[in-house]
Amino acid sequence: MIRMTGIRKAFGSTEVLKGVDLTVEEGQTVALIGASGSGKSTLLRCVNLLETPDEGTIQIGDFSFEAGNITRAVRLEARRKTAMVFQTFGLFENKTALENVTEALIVVQKKTKSEARRIGEEYLERVGLADRASHYPSGLSGGQKQRVAIARALALDPQIILFDEPTSALDPELVQEVLNVIREVSRSNVTMLIVTHEMDFARDVADKIAFMSEGQILECAEPEKLFLHPEKERTRQFLDYYLQKFTYSI
């Protein structure tokens, strides 16, 4: 479970997050949608402190911290309780697919090499890449890289996995293989927060969808309610634009 309360963040004089509250219950999948520049990614990156929030409280399971009190130890702890899947994959270029999954298990979680290897192979199998274990990232397609990244995140057994636009950097024909893996994962009891522009996917996979606009969450509701009966005019406009885009792009 994670709970964010009153998160504020500014880059220079630009306020990107204006007091955001968001809760993801254990085992739930929440999708974060909204226009580019609305603060979705920044909010996500505040959870594992790749961005440092200016104000607010974040609770990850039984660990919580305040914005004003972020020490090196807090950063490490927040990162060790979470995992992230990046838009541009973020696989370690000097490690094979299997090593990408096992590296943190060995170095951070202090598991034995054989134990890490067993876990690594299990998760590569789960994302359908057991046969690519000894390939370096440069020898994998974008879709395969992202699936390795998902395996790496799952293997850490975190309290929550943060997805930062996991399919935005992929060729269109590779998007589905990644979405299918995430869909499969969402059926198990993994807690996930996903920033995405894939509306159909969000609708399909999420327990709740949060719509962000100009640094605030305007609405957070079940997919059917948000898509069919949005409360706010701004949400309706945004969804109309997306539905239109998909209607006309043949």
């Binding site: 594992n48 790749l50 950063r75 490490l76 990162r79 060790r80 979470t82 995992a83 992230m84 990046f86 541009t88 994959f89 973020g90 696989l91 370690f92 270029e93 590296e103 943190a104 170095v107 951070v108 979680q109 790496r152 850490l156």
Partner: peptide, 16 residues
């Protein structure tokens, strides 16, 4: 730059 963020995201220290 994504490499160091990825390393941080799995819980590594700066030195690691």
């Amino acid at each position: 730059k994504g490499q160091i963020e990825a390393a941080y995201s799995v819980g590594m220290t700066t030195r690691q």
